[in-house]
């Protein structure tokens, strides 16, 4: 397996994530899309670290782990916000929550 394989997988994941974020009407689905994007990035980090640097340098892998942790934290925050939005607006559909409209 070469670097290209990883990158292709990562690109697919990324595109799926973008697609989900842009199209899904449900906030939870959007969150899922975001998670996909994040994981595609993590994959990239690990892959580049594995193939482009000496074996003893594992900083890419470490960043990937950080990314996972951050994603978890972010998901928690996101879910909390969604809960709050639901309480406020009675919906979790982003297109119905448009008070930021100029």
């Amino acid at each position: 397996m070469t670097l290209q394989h990883y990158l292709v997988i990562s690109a697919i994941l990324f595109t799926l994530g973008i697609f989900a974020v842009l199209t899904r009407p449900n906030a939870i689905s959007i969150l899922m899309g975001i998670e996909l994007i994040l994981n595609s990035c993590n994959l990239n980090f690990a892959a580049f670290s594995r193939f482009m640097t000496p074996p003893e340098d594992i900083s890419g892998q470490i960043i990937a782990i950080f990314g996972i942790v951050l994603a978890a934290a972010e998901a928690a925050v996101f879910l909390a916000i969604i809960l709050a939005i639901y309480r406020e607006f009675g919906s979790i559909r982003p297109d119905e929550v448009d008070t930021l409209k100029g």
Binding site: I18, V21, L22, I30, P94, D95, V97, D98, K101, G102
Partner: peptide
Amino acid sequence: RIRRIQTGAIQTYLFVVL
């Protein structure tokens, strides 16, 4: 004038970003 751009829909913004 410029504020019209702000639709309030996140996904529109994201599309623009993309």
